[in-house]
């Protein structure tokens, strides 16, 4: 493998090169360890944090912003979004509240307070 990537971990946007075989990948061009982890993940099992919103059913015209607590497999994004779209929550909601469990190995958590 010889793949060029742009790191998405931080705004610096390092240009990474991944070479070698599947079990023995070498990364160059990264400025930090997180970039190295990202490059190997991206070439073996790419993951993304998904953010969206969920309707608050007991408040008028009110949405709470949510995210996956940990990144989920990139290929599962459509299913994760479908799961989020099917949810509603009841206020009050606090930042960090778990709104759904077992979503492709992660959880959906609130990222905003709704009183």
């Amino acid at each position: 493998m010889n793949r060029k990537l742009i790191c998405i971990i931080c705004p610096r946007g390092c240009q990474l090169t991944v070479s070698g075989e599947k079990d023995n990948l070498t990364v160059t061009g990264h400025a930090c360890k997180r970039g190295q982890v990202y490059a190997i993940d991206e070439c073996t099992h790419p993951v993304r944090t998904i953010t969206s919103i969920v309707r608050v059913s007991n408040r008028e015209d009110c949405m709470v912003s949510v995210k996956t607590a940990t990144p989920v497999p990139k290929e599962a994004i459509p299913q994760v979004m479908a799961a989020i779209r099917g949810m509603t929550v009841q206020a009050p909601v606090k930042t960090g509240d778990i709104l759904a469990e077992n979503i492709f190995g992660s959880r959906i958590v609130a990222t905003k307070d709704i009183d």
Partner: peptide, 25 residues
């Protein structure tokens, strides 16, 4: 920040990756 619900905020200043509403909080 309240409408920027995506993540990627705070890595430089707070040392953690947050969404906009979390950073504002």
């Amino acid at each position: 920040l309240r409408q920027c619900i995506h993540n990627g905020f705070g890595l430089h200043k707070l040392g953690q990756e947050l969404t906009g509403p979390e950073y504002a909080t």
